[in-house]
Structure formats: structure tokens, C-alpha cells
């Protein structure tokens, strides 16, 4: 900066940025690593409980009801049902998606556990419980062992699922 530089006079300091930061080395464990490696291949991998037969996705490696290890790997469908949802209208720090957007619990066909997904390609006032959706993945070469490999879910065009088929998962 030279002496010729003309800058607007700065006002008094009124705020101070005080970020708090924690750096972790995160290990998802063997069971969730399997799920993440499935995402890297463009598929949803779950695990079935040998006792009650429920399929968990992502699996934590054991059945929370029976307390036994889940050993059988199950590949799940690319389609599922919106069990419940939320339309996000509130901006927040670090937001990466343009508001409003839909955040939904998606129950993949063949799974007994729903997980959270972004719903796109539909006006936010048309989302509904029971809507059938399909996963839209990133390009093949961009697949990573991360949920970021799933860009979002979009309506699959199938008729809505009957409430009876997903009421247990709310």
C-alpha cells in the first residue's frame, strides 16, 4: 500500500470473530466403512439382523434390538419412500444448498431404517409423505466413500406408497 492510497475511514471495532474449532481424525468403523465403500460404487449397502431379519442402512454392525452382530450384507434398491420431511426456509452459516429445499427421511426398498436425504426436482409444496423417490448419483468418476456421492433424491414417478407400508418408520 502506498501513501497515495485513499481508503474509507474505518469505524470503531464492535465485534470480534472468535471461531471455535476442533480437529478430529474420524473413523467410521468397519460396518459404516462398508456402507461408505458401497456409496463409492454407486450403491446402498445395508446389513440384515440374523435374529429379527431387519435390514439396517447404514449398519452400525449390530442389531440394536437383539444385540447381535449383523453379518449378512444386503444391497438395497435405488428407490425408496419419503416417510417424513421438512422444508428448510431458514438460512444458516455454512449453508451449501439454496433455500427453500426439502430434507426428507427416505426408506429405501428392502430397508427397515430410513435415512436423511435431500429431495430435488420438485416444487417444495408438492412434497408429501409416501412419495416415491430415486437416488441421483454424481458422475461415475466422482463417486467417493461419502454421502456426497448421492447428489439428491427426486420423484421416481411411481404412485405414492400406501401409508400402511411405512407407518412403522415414522
Amino acid at each position: 500500500m502506498t501513501d497515495e492510497t485513499v481508503t474509507e475511514p474505518l469505524g470503531p471495532v464492535t465485534t470480534l470473530a472468535t471461531p471455535i474449532r476442533l480437529d478430529f481424525e474420524f473413523t467410521p468403523g468397519v460396518a459404516q466403512s462398508r456402507f461408505l465403500r458401497g456409496l463409492e460404487q454407486g450403491k446402498f449397502m445395508g446389513q440384515r439382523c440374523p435374529k429379527c431379519g431387519k435390514v439396517y442402512v447404514p449398519s452400525r454392525g449390530s442389531c440394536p434390538t437383539d444385540g447381535v452382530p449383523t453379518t449378512e450384507d444386503v444391497e438395497l434398491a435405488n428407490v425408496g419412500t419419503v416417510t417424513t420431511y421438512c422444508v428448510v426456509n431458514v438460512p444458516f452459516a455454512g449453508q451449501s444448498i439454496e433455500i427453500p429445499y426439502i430434507c426428507a427421511q427416505v426408506l429405501l426398498d428392502g430397508a427397515n431404517l430410513s435415512f436423511m436425504g435431500l429431495i430435488q426436482e420438485i416444487p417444495t409444496d408438492e412434497i408429501r409423505m409416501g412419495m416415491r423417490v430415486e437416488a441421483v448419483w454424481v458422475e461415475r468418476e466422482e463417486l467417493k466413500p461419502s454421502l456426497a456421492s448421492v447428489r439428491y433424491f427426486r420423484p421416481s414417478g411411481e404412485p405414492d406408497a400406501d401409508y400402511e407400508t411405512f407407518k412403522e418408520y415414522l
Partner: peptide
């Protein structure tokens, strides 16, 4: 899958606080 094949990644948790002085 052997244990050694579990993934790991660095993860930063950060809260961008600012306070009035």
C-alpha cells in the same frame, strides 16, 4: 472385511462465533 480396511478421514468441527466487544 478386516479391521484395517475401515476408513478414516480428518474432520473439522467449527463454530464461526463472533462476539460484540
Amino acid at each position: 472385511m478386516p479391521e484395517s480396511e475401515a476408513l478414516h478421514a480428518s474432520h473439522r468441527l467449527e463454530y464461526p462465533y463472533s462476539r460484540s466487544v
